[in-house]
Amino acid sequence: MNIQQSPNFKASDYKSGLTPVWCPGCGDFHVLLSVTKALAELGTPPENVAVISGIGCSSRIPAYTNCYGFHGVHGRSLALGAGLKVARPDLTVMVMSGDGDGFSIGGNHFLHACRRNVDMTYIVMDNRVYGMTKGQPSPTTEPDWDSALSPGGTGLSPFHPLVIALASGANFVAREFSGDIKGSTRTIVEAVRHPGFSFVEILSPCVTFRPDERQWKTQTHAASVEATDDPARAARRIMTDDGFNVGVLYRGRRKPYETHVSDLAGDPAILEEEFAV
């Protein structure tokens, strides 16, 4: 066999040997596949990638990769990721979360991560339900979705992640459907390459508590408009969105958060001068 150019990495190189605990049919399997394919496409060695998460079904993902991972506490993955990226700018940092973890308990961090614009990628697997705790409504759940905790539905307006990301200053905003492996892979690659904070919402069905979401496979469709770098245009589009447009909405040009960490450390003795009387 004469392979003209040997690829550095295959998608399977980014997968660990652990079998996920996710229910068969769960969209998160697709997301894991898309992420590993995207990393293969990017060609970043697995040891130079960190996958950071919080709590929930989606947040189990780091251990299923062969990258460095951190499965932290509920809602704080973006803070873990930002600290890591600022301290280690050489790493590719991907923060992965779910709609409960990312938008409810972690909602404030989401706003400020968008603002701060640290160069990392934030993927939220949105299934509009808390799965790990047996099916409670999340911030993206429809108001009339019935559950034991909120009988008859919450009656609350769902949270609109893309609108909020855009309004908060995220530098790259996209939505994908988990089952569209190619589209998701392509968008994740672009999100990682895009400077600053990139946000990708991936609609990822929960087949156990939201079997109706299997329909997303036919409901999602490619957005009919091209991505824009004009936040005003992006905002107008997203406000009339049906929730099932997939693709890149916005590519911003904001300067990423900058620090200048260096191992060529100055001698702390220089800090003592100010104290001498």
Binding site: M1, N2, K37
Partner: peptide, 20 residues
């Protein structure tokens, strides 16, 4: 494939029309 000229193809460049 032995002895053939086989190109290396990136994951996104396979020519099937579907997602996978």
């Amino acid at each position: 494939m032995q002895g053939m000229q086989v190109p290396q193809i990136n994951p996104l460049d396979y020519k099937w029309s579907g997602s996978e």
